[in-house]
Amino acid sequence: MFNTIIIDDELPARLHLKKLLSHFSKDIKVIAEAQSGSEARDLINTLQPDLVFLDIEMPGLTGFQLLEKLQHMPLIVFCTAYDQYSLQAFETNSVDYLVKPVRLERLQKTIEKTKRFNPSTNNTHKILDLVRELTEKKEEKEMVSLAVKKDDKLIFIKLEDITYFEADERYVLVHSPKGKFLTEQSLAKLELRLPNYFLRIHRSIIINTKYVEEIQKYFNSRYTIKLNNKGVVQITSGRSYLQAIKNWIEM
């Protein structure tokens, strides 16, 4: 029986994974959940679970940053939107990785692998080295411009000219002083490649912090943020992005 913690900033993702794990109740016991890296760090160090299902792309403290701060290193299963190729290196150093949306058939293979895994091969240093390697690869891939749709054409717009990105069904709207454009890249993929001056403040919004004109506390652990985009745009942040915004304010 593996005492297990689920870590993901999105409640639907946690509920989905917990429901899938209920099919393996003889092997997995979910003892806690966390919606942020900071919360997860305290839970892991206190409860010392055997196994953790860890989302990588979280506001505030990412899954990678969390690993570097742990005193107790459990077995790790990464649950992420990272591309499959990038995570293959983790197979021999953690337990496994799952690409979202997680499927029951794929999870079953992970559980079987977990039961066969030798804890003595859970090398913390190797995992952290791989974390740093992936982080460096991310930095190498940062963009300077983005291809967007305008009528029937593809044009390139400089990132510094983009005020914010907004998810809208299957497309992402790109807002800039020059107008609105469409890109087929998801917010998750954009977040991995955008420079550090972009900040995700909501499940569906990434802002360019260089355009921030004013920020105020809002109720229920949120902020209202005003962007100067040839006229002021006011955006309300999501609750789970509170720590990420605080970290940016304190920089």
Rank of each mutant, 00 (worst) to 15 (best):
E140I: 11
L104I: 15
G179H: 02
Q88S: 12
E105A: 15
Y197L: 12
S94N: 15
Y223Q: 01
D50M: 06
L194E: 03
E10K: 13
V131G: 14
L192H: 04
K180V: 12
I56M: 04
K150F: 03
D96C: 12
I56S: 05
I215F: 03
D152A: 14
L146P: 03
Y85R: 12
T4M: 04
F64L: 07
E214K: 04
K230C: 09
E213G: 05
N122R: 09
E142R: 14
E160W: 09
L21Y: 02
K115S: 09
R132P: 07
L128Q: 07
K210Q: 10
V102P: 12
I28G: 02
L11S: 03
Y85C: 08
D55Q: 00
E140N: 14
K226I: 04
D27K: 15
V172H: 04
E140S: 14
L51E: 10
V232T: 10
L194I: 07
Y241K: 00
S120C: 13
R222W: 14
V52F: 07
T236Y: 09
E142I: 09
F24T: 07
Y211L: 06
F219K: 10
R103T: 09
E57S: 11
Q48K: 15
V172P: 00
W248T: 03
E250I: 13
L227P: 00
F53G: 06
D151P: 11
S204M: 01
F165N: 01
L146M: 05
K178R: 08
G37S: 13
H23R: 14
L75N: 01
K19W: 02
Y197M: 11
T135L: 13
H16A: 12
L107E: 12
V144E: 09
L20K: 01
F24H: 06
E105R: 15
E33K: 01
T114K: 09
D161T: 07
A81R: 02
S120L: 14
R116T: 02
F181L: 10
S36I: 02
K141E: 11
L187S: 04
V174A: 01
Y218T: 15
I207N: 02
G63M: 08
R41V: 05
H125F: 11
L61I: 12
Q216P: 08
T62E: 12
D83C: 12
K150M: 06
I28Y: 00
E10G: 09
K158D: 06
R203M: 04
I215K: 00
T4A: 08
R239G: 00
V131W: 11
H23S: 15
S22L: 06
E166C: 04
L227T: 01
V212M: 01
Y164S: 04
E169T: 13
D9V: 00
P119L: 11
E160Y: 13
I127G: 08
L15S: 05
F156Q: 05
